[in-house]
Design a binder for these strands. Structure first.
Lengths: 206, 206
DNA sequence: AACCTGAATTGAACTTAACTCAGGTTGATC
DNA sequence: GATCAACCTGAGTTAAGTTCAATTCAGGTT
């Protein structure tokens, strides 16, 4: 469980700007479709300057994914921390999952679209470090949901079922939205949130 | 609704062999991670021969995705065609979705991991044709599930809800499995199928 | 003010893998 | 056995990510 130390920002560091620009580009156009040099342009630096902050285009992507996973976990914890009733905790967790900014929507989309990157190992050390950290966070998030179900089953609020599998399914259902949802689309996020919240409760508690 | 005419196989065509090899490679190692030349090697031809059958590596990927979507739709239709009861039809459809060979598992994984390709348009004509065909098939499959729900709601078997959204959710839940499932993993597909079948019914019919 | 240090940046060169092209081989059909 | 289309290849091109040696810049030291 090696945690990655976030490189502290020097006063003229462009790391944050690069990450923001990359999220926009990767999120809108897709990782493969966006040229690394375009990100540099948008930040206002030459393409080679990117390598001062990230070892590679993929290293940047993995960083975005890790940060998003960390955020998801934190929000889950925050949303459920003082709710004893399992059903209410579940509802709160789902609502928290969809209580996101447009920028965070892009981050979720990027994360979902590149989960497969976390399987195979990477050549370079820094990339591999990010990958492993992200993979661990995936497991942490899965455990978040599974534990919630286990707790509910133990209290008799949820019927007994394979909590691991059901947890993965609930999570899968929730994040599947990020593959098709567009802020500009016809369905408002609030409506989606409500429907999924109900669906999750029925799935788990019926 | 332009349907793509499958190039009929000349007696010494290696198209099918290429597709099979590509599914193995793309499915196991990932599309980006596998070199196009590796696929050629595995088939036993030079890399340039690939371009006799596919305009590009991406064209091959899009073809795989379209074929898989066509298969999914066909299986759905076959599984539900003579089941009047909506709940039973839903159960049959879910079971059909998981009644797949290991090779088809790879195809589903490839499809799910590259859905984002279907958003943006492609440069070349043949690629774009495959993309559009695939995109249409996605909508067809979504309609398959939505119609099933609409039918069930009309008959009073399912409570009234946004069928479009709920259909997308059910589908999202079902296919989310292909991101993590491995035939070599600890959970047998039959067990997954059963749990998801139940989850879908509760989600829709409770 | 002159100097030093390390972070930040750059242009030019390199690498890799997808792709193009100009032509060669094979085999079914007449 | 001539023909034609399908099929295949080696050599060369291109595009995008990446490396590297050299340079600029900002802030602190003497």
């Amino acid at each position: 469980m090696t945690k990655i130390v976030e490189p502290e920002a020097g006063p003229r560091s462009k790391r944050a700007a690069i990450l923001a620009a990359a999220v926009d580009c990767f999120g809108e156009a897709g990782f493969e479709a966006t040229k690394w040099s375009t990100v540099a342009e948008r930040v206002g630096i030459g393409q080679t300057a990117l390598y001062h902050y990230f070892e590679s285009k993929t290293h940047c992507l993995l960083t975005i994914m890790r940060l998003e996973l960390q955020r998801s976990h934190d929000r889950f914890a925050e949303a459920t921390k003082d709710t004893a009733d399992p059903v209410e905790a579940l509802r709160a967790a789902v609502r928290a999952a969809y209580d996101v900014s447009p920028h965070e929507v892009l981050q979720m989309r990027i994360l979902q679209n590149h989960m497969d990157l976390l399987s195979g190992s990477r050549r370079s050390a820094r990339e591999e470090a990010e990958r492993v950290a992200a993979r661990q966070l995936v497991q942490v998030v899965e455990r978040d949901w599974t534990n919630l179900l286990v707790r509910g089953m133990a209290q008799g609020a949820f019927p007994l079922r394979d909590a691991q599998l059901l947890g993965a399914s609930v999570l899968g259902l929730i994040v599947s939205v990020w593959r098709w949802y567009r802020p500009s689309g016809p369905t408002p996020l609030a409506e989606i949130s409500e429907l999924i919240e109900g669906a999750c409760v029925r799935m788990v508690a019926s």
